[in-house]
Structure formats: C-alpha cells, structure tokens
C-alpha cells in the first residue's frame, strides 16, 4: 500500500527522468556511431597525418574516466570560450567517450573481413570508396554488431553520470527523490529496475533484430 502511494507520488518524475535518459542515450549513440566510423577508418590509414589524430583521440578518451571527461567538458571548456549547456555537454561527453571504444570495434571489424574480399573487389576494378561501401563495410558491420550491443548498454549506463552535472535524467531524479523522502531502497531499487528494462528490454532486442536484418542483407549480396 505504502509502495503504491510512493509510486503515485513519484512515478511521473521517474518516468520523466527515464525519457530524458532515453533521449540522451539516442543522441550520444548517434554521435558515438558517427565518430566511431570516422575515427575507425582513420585508424586504418597508412598516412601518419590521418591515423595520428585518430590514435590520440582514441587513447585519450579510452585512457581517462568518463566522469573526468564530463567534468572537463562542462567546467573547463568554458574557460576556452566554449560554453555548452549541461544537456549538450553531457551527451557530447558520453558520445565522444563511447565513440573511442566504438572506433576500435570498427577498426577490428574491418580488419576481420577476409583479404580475398579486398582482392576480389580490386580485381573487379572497384574504386576504394565503392569497395569499402559495397563490399567491406557491410561484412564488417555484421561482424561487429554483437559487440556494439554491449557498447550501447555501456553507453546507456554512462549516461547516468551526467546526473552529476545536474542533467535531470533518471539517475538525477532518483537522487532528488531520495533526498526528500529518504526512501532509498524504493527509489534506487525502482531506478535500477528501470535501467535494467531499458537495456534488456529495449537495446538487446533492438540489436538482435538489427543482427538478423543485416545477416539477411549481407546474405543476399554474397
């Protein structure tokens, strides 16, 4: 009974927080995917001016903590004259962090495509761009989809950290309700379950669906 009253009082806030978390996750996932593809391809180049910057980016973002990156982007960048609104700073930090991990997946995925595929495409006198787009990348994508599923769950979990720069996501709402009601087990417990539902109920099934879709597409092309 008490629990129902609690849900009635605070449910709407938790739902609003969850929606913000989903929004953050989608925006940072989009950013992470774009960055990962660009940086991953750059890392494969043999030109130092191309792979150098990508390597520095990947090492810096994988070598430090996401929380440090969020604080740095939010508190230090303004000193360089670049002030970001907290929501923007949050999703950019999360996207750039997971983008660095994603870049390694893209690189590994492309490297895992058998050499014969490259040679065959060259033998058919495809240009490097078409070879990448039509032959190599679709197969690489199929190889790297399962680890991307894990990465997206890491990304969802990463968005919880932006609550520390006061973005009102699920984590932030849970903290806020806890500080007024002191019902820690209930509020944090519900928040944990909501995060679990988002990762196992939304991300995992979506990735499974995408894997099946891609397998069919690549299967047709082969």
């Amino acid at each position: 009974m008490e629990f129902l009253v609690f849900l009635k009082d605070h449910g709407p806030e938790l739902i609003r927080g969850s929606l913000t978390t989903i929004e953050l996750t989608m925006l940072s996932a989009a950013l992470a995917i774009i960055i990962a593809v660009i940086a991953g391809l750059m890392r494969l180049s043999t030109n130092r001016l191309v792979y150098g910057p990508a390597t520095v980016y990947v090492e810096i973002f994988r070598g430090t903590s996401l929380l440090v990156q969020i604080y740095w982007i939010f508190f230090v960048l303004p000193l360089f004259g670049l002030t970001l609104e907290k929501f923007t700073a949050g999703f950019i930090a999360v996207g750039m962090n997971l983008g660095a991990y994603g870049a390694e997946l893209v690189r590994g995925g492309i490297q895992s495509v058998p050499k014969g595929q490259w040679e065959a495409a060259t033998a058919l006198s495809m240009s490097p761009a078409i070879r990448m787009r039509r032959i190599i990348f679709p197969q690489a994508l199929l190889n790297m989809l399962p680890p991307w599923g894990n990465l997206l769950i890491e990304l969802l979990k990463g968005t919880a950290l932006v609550a520390l720069i006061s973005v009102s996501d699920l984590m932030f709402m849970a903290k806020k309700i806890n500080s007024t009601t002191y019902l820690s087990a209930q509020v944090f417990g519900i928040a944990l379950v909501l995060y679990y539902l988002m990762s196992r109920g939304l991300i995992t099934p979506f990735m499974r669906w995408l894997e099946r879709l891609m397998a069919r597409k690549v299967g047709k092309r082969l």
Binding site: I153, L156, K157, G158, A160, L161, A163, L164, M171, A174, K175, N178, Y182, L183, S184, A185, F188, G189, A191, L192, Y195, Y196, S199, R200
Partner: peptide, 23 residues
C-alpha cells in the same frame, strides 16, 4: 549477474550507500 551488468555502477554505489542506513 545480468542485472548488475546492465545497470549503472553509479546507481549501485548510491544504492549500497543509502539503503543500508534505512535498515
């Protein structure tokens, strides 16, 4: 294990720290 792996560490830290005193 699945549950722990798919929820944020930061929330788990808060959970452990604040739920104890309630009991």
């Amino acid at each position: 294990v699945e549950f722990i792996r798919s929820t944020p560490l930061i929330l788990q830290i808060f959970f452990v720290f604040y739920v104890g005193p309630q009991f």
